[in-house]
Design a protein around this nucleic acid. Structure first.
Lengths: 351, 351
DNA sequence: CTGAAAGCGCTTACAG
DNA sequence: CTGAAAGCGCTTACAG
């Protein structure tokens, strides 16, 4: 092969390709490809010359071009659709997924959906267009059937935290109903009958399940559901705080609060603290709070195993990417209550 | 053009390409490309037929193939290297970068470096191999000169939170020295002379700058630096907690603590709380704590504007991607102290 | 052990 | 308004 000088090659002054490396080392691009991919069957002096050229040119293989031609067509990327990359639950999930992806040599696109169905669809489309090998999704849209087509055409999808709607697909979720029931029963056991429920957006399945768990626990305890104590669709800590302030102003206020999501719990704690009732009104929250161990009294929380949630979802996805076509699986992880103080404040019926 | 039936096309049962759409609608792939890209100059009946075929086949354009051929070669992706996607500082930065990227129709790869230089290099290489259009990096490695080659070959890089070492490049950072000085001077002003310093890993430039700010403040106040009160290289809340426990056991313990990073602050608060000294020993922290408003007393914090840090870095990156070749710029944002309680606990020399 | 040709899915640069 | 040919950077499938 005709050999080129470094200057001649450099004159192109765009990112070097295998062609440039080939020209500089005087071999064909097929040989460069062999060396770059560490394939056997290249004489050591040629390999050395090629390697030297890659170093001299700072050659970087183009993985997307490579995957375009490759048989499997894998891009070594996956996509992750979260509620909001910056919230503690989402970002813990993100890290768990990343750790599994790294073991597979795969990098991850992450994006925030903000509970907006259009954004879920747009982001999924953007990632499919970039040929991610698969998607892990915390679903928001009222319906995930649109993903059936993507899956059929080769992009596997695994759902986490919430099950998909109108689509049979792998998912990993927490047993929200049982967790919420446990949390509410814990309050009943500590002598509370007037237990308020604070809920996130009812469009979110986990929020509905936690409400069901609350209702279920009251039913089992033979307590009537008091509609005046139920505040759902709270979207922010501020709204939750206002809701609790209203509840406290009731003629017959609650003696305990079941706060079914972490931001909602924060709002409830603020309202109680401002009212000076944080040692009087019991609280059980759902989902861990950052720095909860610094709070006084400590907050009793029903906790999800977020890292396991993310790790299992990612592992399921990689099995699908590897070709697993078995029927969709559903994994349900338990939520566990940890007593820290606020949940053990005794109520009027404490024994 | 010879028209194919849906069954004939579907028989390939792999992800449909423009070729498939072309076959089904009886046109050339160039015409499909025109329709898919919304280019003008296609008769409406042909456009309609092509569109119908894309819908029937669930055709999804392959953006990576498109960008491979395209002149600009942009992949519409960027990479973000963070300390740990799941820590509050990193994930807030992530969200800010994502929001700017979204405006540009760009999706973002995010990854955790965990203060490991090798991981920084590996991740950067993995992203360059996937031809991200640019990189936003919180640098960890002792030297970023390796990125000069990537930049020269067409991948712009912007640094955030910490300046790059051995490389002239755009960066956005907080004025850590001034922030730490302000925080320390705040304690001096409230009557403290024995002020402990708790620091993160000294390999991190921000940790060193904050230490300098502390030293600077003592100097300005005419106070001697007491080496027994300086604890650096604390990597976790647990280590910080242990460090404060040791400090409290000193014959002449500190009356105030300057905790120069959020996890370190958490550890310090725990130690003081356990010792029952959280209303006695003053604390000023650097970097906000999640839920800090629920703590009692509230924690006085020197805060960075994380969202602005991320937004500016992302905007700088997109300018570079758009072709801006002006000299490297450095943006320094102020950190501002917010009084919340712990920083105003009076010391023995309070006036 | 090495290379020329073809092709991955798309767009460019033409031609008609 | 539409299409045939070439090519982006790489790998496959051959041939020698």
């Amino acid at each position: 092969m005709e050999r080129m000088s470094l200057d001649e090659v450099d004159a192109r002054h765009s990112r070097p390709t295998m062609k440039d490396v080939a020209a500089l080392s005087g071999v064909s691009i097929k040989t460069v490809s062999r060396v770059v991919n560490g394939e056997a069957g290249v004489s050591s002096d040629v390999a050395e010359r090629v390697l030297a050229a890659t170093v001299k040119l700072d050659y970087r293989r183009d993985l997307s071009a490579s995957s375009l031609r490759r048989g499997d067509g894998k891009s070594q990327t996956i996509g992750l659709l979260l509620e909001d990359v910056s919230n503690p639950f989402s970002s813990a999930l993100h890290r768990a997924v990343e750790d599994v992806a790294r073991e597979h040599g795969v990098v991850v696109f992450a994006g925030s959906v903000d509970e907006d169905p259009d954004r879920e669809r747009d982001l999924a489309a953007a990632l499919v267009a970039r040929r991610t090998d698969g998607l892990v999704i915390v679903p928001t849209a009222p319906d995930q059937s649109y993903l059936a087509r993507e899956r059929r055409n080769g992009t596997p999808v695994v759902f986490v935290d919430r099950p998909p709607v109108q689509l049979e697909a792998d998912h990993v979720v927490t047993d929200n109903l049982a967790g919420a029931r446990d949390g509410t029963e814990h309050l009943v056991r500590h002598g509370h009958h007037r237990i308020a429920f604070l809920g996130d957006l009812s469009t979110i399945s986990t929020a509905r399940e936690r409400y069901e768990g609350y209702v279920d626990a009251l039913g089992r305890a033979g307590l009537a559901l008091a509609p005046d104590l139920v505040r759902r669709d709270l979207r922010t800590a501020e709204q939750a705080q206002a809701a609790v302030e209203e509840l406290l102003a009731l003629p017959d206020p609650p003696t305990a609060v079941f706060a079914s999501q972490n931001l909602v719990t924060v709002g409830a704690l603020r309202a109680l603290r401002h009212a000076g009732l944080h040692r009087t009104v019991a609280v059980v929250g759902f989902d861990s709070l950052p720095m909860q161990d610094l709070l006084d009294p400590g907050v009793t929380i029903v906790e999800q195993d977020v890292r396991r949630l993310g790790a299992i979802a990612a592992e399921m996805l990689f099995q699908r990417i590897a070709g697993d076509t078995s029927p969709a699986r559903s994994v349900v992880l338990p939520a566990t209550l940890t007593e820290r103080g606020t949940g053990e404040i005794p109520g009027p019926f404490a024994s």
